[in-house]
Amino acid sequence: LQSMFRSNWVIECRDKGRLLLEDRTKIKINPTMKLVINDTTYYLKKDFANKRVRLENSEQTIAEITYDKIIPPATVSIEKKQGDLSLHLIACLYYIFMLRE
């Protein structure tokens, strides 16, 4: 029943195994997605009127993704701060996050 209102994905990744990605947005202007990798929970968050998407866990910010505009052609940059997630995986998660609707 919950999947009727919120999107859920099960992603098979060669490096990390099975990933669970779930939309946790309560207010449409502040989208949030929850990512579970091997019992570790990460969150993709975007604030209203901010051109920055953050990937973070409970202790720290893993990466910050910035873009200049939403409609193509857009320039996207990823700044990986900490963690063991690959840059390719972070880019794929950002792509899913931006196309969630």
Rank of each mutant, 00 (worst) to 15 (best):
I78F: 13
H88N: 10
S3M: 07
I29F: 10
E101S: 10
R14Q: 14
V76H: 08
Y94D: 07
I37A: 03
I71E: 14
Q2K: 04
T75C: 13
R100Q: 08
G17P: 10
Y95R: 07
L93F: 15
K51S: 08
G83L: 06
C13K: 03
P72E: 09
T32Y: 01
K69R: 15
P73F: 12
G17I: 07
N57K: 04
T61F: 08
L55M: 03
Q2I: 00
S86W: 06
R54H: 01
K69I: 02
K26W: 12
V53F: 02
G83Q: 07
L44E: 05
R100M: 04
K81F: 15
P73L: 10
S7H: 10
W9K: 05
I71Y: 12
K28V: 05
T40S: 12
Q2A: 09
A63T: 01
L93N: 05
G83P: 11
R14T: 11
W9T: 01
D84C: 14
F48I: 04
N38A: 15
I37M: 08
R18D: 11
Y42D: 02
A63V: 01
A74Y: 06
Q2F: 03
L19Y: 11
I11W: 04
I29H: 08
N57S: 04
Y94P: 03
S3E: 09
I29P: 00
L20Y: 10
L35Q: 00
M33H: 01
R6T: 08
E12A: 09
V76W: 15
F48V: 04
L85Y: 08
I62G: 05
V76R: 13
C13E: 13
L99Y: 07
G17W: 07
H88G: 03
S58P: 01
K51V: 00
A49C: 15
T75L: 15
R6V: 02
T40A: 10
L44P: 03
L99D: 14
C92A: 12
E79D: 13
R14M: 11
A91C: 08
A49V: 13
K81I: 15
T32H: 07
W9C: 03
V10S: 13
M98K: 08
M33N: 00
L99I: 05
M33Q: 04
I96V: 09
L21K: 09
L21W: 14
L93I: 06
I27A: 06
R6W: 11
N57L: 01
K46F: 00
P31F: 03
A74E: 14
I70H: 11
K45R: 00
L19F: 07
Q2D: 06
R52V: 14
E59R: 09
L89N: 03
S58K: 07
K46D: 00
P72L: 03
A49K: 13
E22G: 03
R24C: 15
I27C: 09
F97S: 00
F5R: 08
K34V: 05
D23S: 06
A63W: 07
I96W: 00
S86P: 07
D39C: 14
K81A: 06
R54I: 06
R6Q: 11
T66S: 11
F5Y: 12
L85I: 09
L21D: 06
R100V: 00
L89M: 08
